[in-house]
Computed example of a mutant assay.
Amino acid sequence: MPSDPALRVLIVEDDPMTAQAHADFVARVPGFAVADICLSGRDAIAKFDDLAEAGHPVDIILLDMNLTDSHGLEVAGRLNSRGRDVDIIAITAVRHLQVIRSAISVGITQYLIKPFTFAAFKEKLENQRAFRQGLAGSGSLATQASVDNALSALRSVSATPLPKGLIAETLEAVSAFVRDSTVPVSATEVGQRLELSRVTVRRYLEHLVSTKQAIKQPRHGTPGRPEYEYRWA
């Protein structure tokens, strides 16, 4: 029996490096494929329509809120007005409650705050797939059970408690630094960038290694007592 086709994801992010990082993350999640990358709201709307007309409609949109030419809320409203079966996940550093409330009102189903780990990103995509599957295949009318199951799929499972002394926001910052670095980095380098002590950073890095999100290796050219460096898994 053939497997379900990959869900097509349109990435809307005005920073090219961040957009590519999101595309790389999408490629790492089985069952999802990048439809395209758009660096502005105007391009996103045009590409969305072009792909639909070409017979390759978008299933999920990853949408930044602060775009160079428009606000993500405006873009989400215009995209949803097309009446197509598309889900929108906001991926943004914006934390204002009014924006989050407005995001829900224009049809954004999930909200992922930057910076984040690959695990958090993957969970949002998989939640969205479960949501779509929960509302599919039951004809034109839903049952109460199908609605409840679909909505529950969007709720993230409570995260495993962090080891004592680790703070979630600091972990996200360290994770983002390692993830975005093009070369392996040491605890000293991360600490200097984030204004944290080397000892503190090393605890977070070791946690990433223990959860298989990062890889630890000796740094070349440091004989005797080698310094270790870390790269994203």
Results as ranks from 00 to 15, higher is better:
I100L: 09
I100Y: 00
A103G: 11
I104W: 06
I104Y: 03
I104F: 07
V106N: 00
G107P: 03
G107Q: 07
T109S: 07
Y111R: 02
L112I: 08
I113S: 08
F116M: 05
F118S: 06
A119D: 15
K122Q: 15
K122M: 14
E123A: 15
E123D: 15
K124M: 13
L125G: 03
L125Y: 08
E126C: 05
E126H: 00
Q128K: 02
R132S: 09
G134A: 11
S140K: 09
S140T: 15
A142D: 12
T143E: 09
A145G: 03
A145F: 10
V147D: 01
V147T: 09
D148N: 15
D148C: 09
A150M: 12
L151H: 08
L151Q: 10
S152I: 03
A153G: 05
L154I: 06
L154T: 04
L154K: 02
R155F: 07
V157G: 11
S158D: 14
S158A: 14
P161D: 08
P163G: 06
K164C: 06
K164V: 13
G165P: 02
L166Y: 07
A168H: 08
L171G: 09
A173E: 14
A173R: 13
A173D: 14
V174A: 11
F177V: 06
R179E: 13
R179H: 14
S186Y: 05
G191E: 00
Q192V: 10
E195N: 15
R198H: 15
R203A: 12
Y204L: 06
Y204F: 13
